[in-house]
Design a protein around this nucleic acid. Structure first.
Length: 892
RNA sequence: GCACGAGUAGCUCAGUGGUAGAGCGGCUGUCUUACACACAGUUGGUCAGGAGUUCGAAUCUCUUCUCGUGUACCA
């Protein structure tokens, strides 16, 4: 037997198998296959992205599902790819431009050249994450890798736009949108994060034009006062009724503006008077429309003041202008007071700066198939796990607003709309454009550009990235593939994109893919946080690099460690210690296999001589099959992982292997054969069950233990799961439960024996002699020999007539009284006190149990089985108590 | 404000009506010929607080507190 290193080195092994699997086409999905289909589409990471812990969690789960499905005989498609991520990718290249000397912007480069530069960047640096997913061991069909802007996908996006436009669901209009002044683009509501912020509430005096007094008005945004067009009060407010219809003087760029009445104003809030600035506030805009007020815009697209009438502020940054405007007002003696104030400010998810409500021309979508999408989840046609996300989903759909789908970006799908050249300016300024205008022939909408391009001008805007992502489950598949693998089976993603992506995919599925839902199950993963409960982020520097973790602990170790702590339904706090445990577990597996390899050829004995411990572990293995199947069927990945861990480490290594080691050295060859057979069976089944979560080490050990030969030499990952039914097929239930009871008793007795040694400060490896005075359970030589081995003793013997010297350490075991003779070292007092202590505990338990059984209501109402269990427990304790009392008497 | 999660050992988490668990950590021993990335033993909990339902509650109900997430907003 060749000498193997003592510790498992994952890196070489993992790379070797990743290469082999791919070269043998193990991940490839065959749409022609007769097997039942199982499919997942990957949530496409940004093409600029690098692997983070969230990806690891998410993709490990998908890989477990995919690999298990293959073992269950399904034809599996796990479709990978990346997202063009409009803003992120464009920003990435703009950053490169800014670093040049002299620095350039995309405007310096021009649209066409800039877009080419982004493509170049994508080809060169994009898709790092794909390589990283491969290092994690993901079994995606890499031959089918897609990109949301590739030549197959792009026409699908334009087609979706065109259809929705023709249906009248897409329109262009001048509306209040969320404007990002740094990126200079509109954003959807979902891209704005409402954040509580500390700010100031300024109360300002607006003088009545007739000189009869003043009106106090509070605001957090004094820099927009120049855009005020009215002051509103509630019509029911008795304080101000007489003022309605009068005018006040606007404090900056002094002009008379009217005092109007509007229900929107809360009587109890602030001063009860509200300045109306339609250009810079959503609700003010509505009030303005209702009252037919002028709209004065005093901000530029990049958030600077645009108000030549107020030269002190003109051209200033919006935040600097805030302070300056207050200075100006104070100088005029119009500042009443300044208070600290906390309000919610909308922050751009992308650029992290406060957004501006801004009136601008944008494209909007009225969502299709909203009702079908809501119903599908409500009636269980699409199952959400954990189920409570269904409520969040339903709530969002109820209050759904039209989606602003245009972005003032260059990188992305350009809006497939062309304007007639001679009317282009006029058309682009129209307050509303929709299907009717297309019918009139003024605009052209289509997948292909118009036939006479020289007569047309294309819309400048690009589409929101999510407008392509929502087509992902079907636009990634060709017709053949779709016929076999659509609808997909499972979707695994984070709950943070439930609206951005999941909900929209469901609507798109019903609308565009023959009215079929895009997937049957959605599994929402936890969000990975650091130990302080904070989200992992680059700025906090609390996000470990998964590649470092793979280098340190192996991909298998990382996968296993993370899955072991990932709860279902809540966030997971990441602790590197857990990953180390994953590595330790891999090492344990490796060494257990190495131990087997040192034992020579497998057994060919047709009738191996099983002893109770053999039957016990095989029966537990059968149970493990069931636990694993159930855990995975319910998507309880931590149950699955935990079951694998405790079976192998505790049941197989710590108990079974330790109990059978001697069989392999000498003794009955038939028993040796039984042991080899059992070890091989356990390892063979176990590696198959483990393979989905720790594929590399499972495959490596499968090969080195020679199991592949049994299955036409195929890799483990392409081998069907061994059948649990074959285990212990020749034995009946009574024999099995008898063997299990004896084994449990054996292991418990061994524990007692080790306890005795430890209590007398005897080192684990100190050879001692145990004597058992047999009790109820039958003691065989086989069990005695195993007991001796487990307890680390020279011998364990049965002696019914044994007379222990007074003070000999003893313990009660399922097999009877166990003695540890310490020749010459007896201490009567120590023994008395030990036994008394145990007796005391027993008496307490008995009292508790008697009280319970003495309670008539308990006996009447509790289920019979529970009462019976309690009675049995009491009987056992009482018998133990009697024995302990006898032991105590013998000591005196 | 509303909705949804979570609060169990020093840490990370299991446990959904029937004697409070695991791993790690701590402490003691041990390099016992698969594994010191290990083995053996041991320590450690008013199950966030309170009330209720029940023969019986970590588990069900109500309530309070703390943390997280989503969502709506009044300047």
């Amino acid at each position: 037997m060749t000498e193997l290193p003592k510790a498992y080195e994952p890196n070489f092994v993992e790379e070797k198998w990743q290469t082999r699997w791919m070269s043998e086409g193990c991940f490839h999905a065959d749409p022609q296959s007769a097997k039942p289909a199982y499919s997942i589409v990957i949530p496409p990471p940004n093409v600029t992205g690098v692997l983070h812990m969230g990806h690891v969690l998410n993709n490990t789960i998908q890989d477990i599902l995919a690999r298990r499905a293959r073992q269950e005989g399904k034809e599996v498609l796990w479709l990978p790819g990346t997202d063009h991520a409009g803003i992120a990718t464009q920003a990435r290249v703009e950053k490169e431009l800014a670093k040049e000397t002299p620095p350039r912007t995309r405007y310096d480069v021009g649209r066409e050249d800039f877009v080419n530069m982004v493509w170049e960047w994508k080809e060169k640096h994009g898709g790092i994450i794909i390589k990283q997913l491969k290092k994690l061991g993901c079994s995606c069909d890499w031959e089918r890798e897609r990109f949301t802007m590739d030549s197959v996908f792009a026409p699908e996006v334009a087609r979706a736009f065109t259809e929705l436009f023709k249906e009248g669901l897409i329109y262009r209009g001048r509306r209040m949108v969320n404007w990002d002044p740094v990126l200079r683009t509109a954003l959807s509501d979902e891209e704005v994060i409402m954040t509580p912020s500390k700010s100031k509430l300024y109360t300002i005096r607006y003088k009545l034009a007739d000189g009869s007094g003043q009106l106090l008005v509070s605001t957090t945004r004094p820099e927009t006062i120049m855009a005020d067009v009215a002051v509103a009060v509630n019509p029911k407010d008795p304080r101000f009724g007489h003022l309605i219809g009068k005018t006040v003087i606007r404090p900056l760029v002094e002009t008379e503006i009217p005092i109007i009445a509007d229900d929107h104003v809360e009587i109890d809030f602030g001063t009860g008077a509200l300045k109306i600035t339609p250009a810079h506030d959503r609700t003010d805009f509505e009030v303005g429309m209702k009252n037919n007020l002028e709209i004065i815009d005093v901000l530029t697209a990049d958030g600077h003041i645009n108000c030549p009438a107020c030269p002190e502020l003109h051209g200033m940054d919006r935040f600097a202008a805030r302070d300056k405007s207050i200075e100006l007002i104070e100088a005029k003696g119009l500042l009443e007071k300044v208070e600290d104030y906390e309000n919610n400010v909308g922050i751009s998810q992308r650029s992290d700066v406060p957004i501006e409500p801004r009136l601008s021309m944008q494209w909007f979508l009225k969502y299709p198939c909203v009702e079908e999408a809501a119903a599908a989840v409500a009636n269980g046609d699409i199952v959400f796990r954990p189920a409570h996300w269904a409520k969040t989903y339903a709530h969002w759909l109820e209050g759904i607003q039209d989606w602003c789908i245009s972005r003032q970006l260059w990188w992305g799908h350009r809006i497939p709309v062309w304007y007639r050249k001679d009317k282009a300016t006029e058309l682009q300024e129209a307050t509303k454009l929709d299907a009717e205008d297309a019918a009139a022939g003024d605009i052209y909408v289509g997948v292909e550009p118009p036939a006479d391009p020289e007569n047309w001008v294309q819309d400048e805007d690009a589409l929101d990235t999510w407008f392509s992502s929502w087509l992902w489950p079907f636009a990634t598949m060709d017709a053949e593939c779709r016929a076999k693998f659509y609808p997909t089976s499972d979707l695994v993603t984070g709950p943070d994109i439930i609206f951005f992506w999941v909900a929209r995919m469901i609507m798109a599925g019903y609308r565009f893919a023959d009215g079929k839902k895009p997937f049957s199950n959605v599994f929402f993963t936890s969000i990975v946080r650091d130990l302080l409960g904070r989200k992992m982020s680059k700025s906090l520097g609390n996000s470990p690099d998964p590649l470092d973790l793979i280098a340190k602990y192996g991909a298998d170790g990382l996968r296993f460690g993370l899955m072991r702590i990932a709860p279902t339904g809540t966030d997971v706090k990441f602790d590197e210690k857990q990953i180390e445990e994953g590595k330790n577990f891999a090492n344990k597996l490796y060494n257990a296999a190495r131990f087997r390899m040192m034992q020579g050829e497998a057994s060919t004995d047709p009738a191996p001589k099983f002893t109770p411990v053999h039957i016990d572990i095989l029966s537990k293995l059968k149970e493990l099959h069931a636990t694993v199947a159930e855990g995975l069927a319910k998507y309880e990945f931590n149950t699955y992982t935990q079951a694998l861990y405790s079976f192998f480490w505790n049941e197989y290594c710590s108990l079974f292997l330790e109990a059978v080691k001697n069989d392999l050295r000498d003794g009955d060859p038939a028993v040796k054969n039984a042991t080899l057979y059992t070890i091989d069976t356990v390892l063979r089944h176990y590696l198959a069950l483990l393979s989905p979560i720790m594929p590399h080490i499972a495959e490596e050990l499968w090969q080195s233990l020679g199991f592949a030969a049994r299955y036409e030499g195929k890799p483990l990952m392409s081998t069907p799961l061994p059948q649990a039914e074959a285990l212990l097929a020749g034995l009946d239930e009574t024999e099995i439960s008898k063997a299990r009871a004896l084994s449990t008793a054996l292991y418990e007795t061994a524990n007692r024996a080790r306890n005795l040694k430890a209590e007398y400060n005897l080192a684990t490896n100190k050879k001692v002699r145990f004597i058992l005075k047999p009790g109820a359970l039958p003691l065989t030589d086989d069990l005695l020999a195993r007991l001796a081995l487990l307890a680390g003793s020279q011998s364990a013997t049965a002696d019914a007539a044994y007379e222990a010297p007074k003070g000999t350490p003893t313990a009660l075991t399922p097999f009877g009284e166990l003695f540890l003779p310490l020749d010459g070292l007896v201490d009567v007092e120590a023994e008395r006190s030990r036994i008394s202590k145990e007796l005391e505990k027993m008496t307490k338990e008995i009292a508790k149990s008697q009280a319970k059984l003495g309670n008539a209501t308990f006996v009447d109402r509790a289920p019979a089985a529970v009462v019976e269990q309690e009675r049995a427990r009491l009987a056992e304790w009482e018998s133990k108590k009697a024995q302990l009392e006898a032991m105590l008497t013998a000591l005196s």
